[in-house]
């Protein structure tokens, strides 16, 4: 009985839709036919997948390339340690994840470009890791969840020796439990 109610409701909605005047773009184009042909069967199946919301507190979201949580790097300007505005949504999302998953821990690895002393660069990387840690704490993550360390200039992502390479290497990476 319920089923027949839904069918009736659906046909009412369909009727309502078809009673609306067609949009100018649709005129003569014949894009959306209400009588499905064999060719167009797959079209409506794509939409639900694309619109499926990603649960930004789930473990799967850490690896899902469509999720902001799969992004793990924060980049810095030369001799700078402040978080640029463009990375604030990223840190906000990671902070929410940490709040929702209090057992998850994060290792923040700071990096520096290759110029100058290795130990001083280690300290520069530490400053960058500390900056991300501080922001995540402000956004609600707990001290026990976070460790900020530095790899200095020792693990460059880009092995080059120009400004493009150095910019890529002035970076923090965020790693979760099980990833380091």
């Amino acid at each position: 009985m319920l089923k027949s109610f839904f069918v009736a409701a659906a046909s009412l909605i369909l009727a309502a839709c078809s009673s609306q005047p067609p949009a100018p773009e649709q005129a003569g184009a014949g894009v959306e036919s209400r009588t499905p042909s064999a060719v167009k069967v797959e079209t409506p199946q794509v939409k639900p997948v694309a619109q499926e919301p990603i649960d930004l507190t789930s473990m799967a979201a850490l690896r899902d390339p469509r999720s902001i949580l799969s992004k793990r790097s924060v980049f810095f300007d030369y001799d700078q340690f402040s978080i640029k505005d463009e990375f604030k949504p990223l840190l906000d999302a990671h902070a929410r994840f940490l709040v929702a998953n209090p057992k998850m821990k994060m290792l923040i690895q700071g990096n520096a470009d290759e110029r100058g002393s290795r130990e001083y660069n280690l300290a520069l990387g530490q400053k960058r890791a500390d900056a991300v840690k501080k922001m995540l704490l402000l956004l609600g993550a707990r001290e026990e969840q976070l460790e900020a360390v530095s790899l200095g200039e020792e693990k460059p992502r880009n092995p080059g020796h120009d400004e493009a390479a150095w910019a890529e290497n002035r970076r923090d990476d965020m790693l979760y439990t099980g990833e380091y």
């Binding site: 290792l107 690895q109 280690l122 530095s150 790899l151 200095g152 020792e154 693990k155 380091y180």
Partner: peptide, 11 residues
């Protein structure tokens, strides 16, 4: 010798 090693992913 004292030294710094990164074998545990941190110094």
């Amino acid at each position: 010798l004292a030294y710094v090693s990164f074998e545990a992913k941190k110094p």
